[in-house]
Design a protein around this nucleic acid. Sequence first.
DNA 1: TTTGCCGGGTG
DNA 2: CACCCGGCAAA
Length: 406
Amino acid sequence: MAAMKSRAGPRATQPATEEDGGLIYMQCCGQEDVDAQKHCQNPVQSSSGPGRVWPSTAAVPKSNPFTFPQSSNVDLPYRYRSPESVEMDEIMAAMVLTSLSCSPAVQSPPQRDPLPAAPGDMECGGGELSDSGSSGYWSWDHGSVSPAPSPSVTETDGSVGHSVDEGLQMELEPGLSDETENMRCKSLSRGAYRCLWPGCGKVLTSRVGMKRHIRILHLGSGSEQSHREEDFYYTEVSSEEQEPTPPSPDPSFFSGPWSSCSSTHSQSTHGPQEAPPPSSALSQSAPSSVWQIHTEHLYQACTPIEVTVLPGSPASCDRPPPGGLQSRPQITTTRSRSVSVGEQWLQRNSAPTRSQTMSASPSRGHCSFRKGRGEAKKCRKVYGVERRDQWCTACRWKKACQRFPD
DNA sequence: TTTGCCGGGTG
DNA sequence: CACCCGGCAAA
Ligand SMILES: [Zn+2]
């Protein structure tokens, strides 16, 4: 009875602004421990509580870290069936990948702001393959498995002197040109090349690939003296139609794109995709409830957050080197996508190195300083007064936020 | 005004 | 203890 009260309590008190949050959103978000944990009781009413989950995630068919389609031109056939949708995916993937990898890139000591304001460096190039290598926690990592994006095309014909053209041959070159590589980041998928040869409508992602295709198949491999010829037999198609900002009332930046990003994409089997998720009406919820409940407990049970400094790094905060939580990403990928901020604080929080080595306990250090006001957005702001059930426990109790500490 | 949360209350 | 809220200060 007590348990029921606790759960139902807040919920009932709620103004119930939710249109009709009575449905069970959590579908397949986390079929493992998540389910078990949150499922403790109230099987039906788990929706309103922490059980709520971002729909985007729910739609994901837990395939796997989805390998980049731009791998090579092997995916030509399937790509041709529905260039629109597939391309969308790629775009999304590219964007996401870029944004993710670009920021927390290498290992700069004080990097904290995931915004590569300055374009033109090694963000794209470096990130392209280090997206997962360096920052393993960012879930989907395929880089470790398939490092070579499109070897066949680019290299196979390496002997040919196609250096004149556009210089776009840097398919896997780690960034050398300025704008070129920058462009590549986006056109990596968006820019497709279609063969104009009568009867052939092949679409390739890479220019060189297209050239090669034309040269080999149409112009004839034998006489490879027509470098410029190929240019006339293919055209550059670019289908961009995805709006920059998805109509999502949620404060979280992603979630909109995410859903579609992973929804389609049938790389495992083949063509007939699984039809897009019908969850388009209302799309907002908690991205992942795992961490949430984790936190909640954290506040209650893990209160004794003493020093526990590591004997090596007294520094304020340093990220856990890629190695501790290495095996995790693979699994996490299943329902990978989490939040934006949520994930951040999570990983930050997960590290035990979060202490004030200085004033550990001089004598009584309890001076009642008003502690100004943290600048970090707290649960309240992030989730809003409505959806209060997603706040961390502390916030709900009007205590110092535990999820987004200062 | 909103937001964060301390201090105090209740069961 | 968990849970909630009045009310204050900062933004
Ligand atoms: Zn909070």
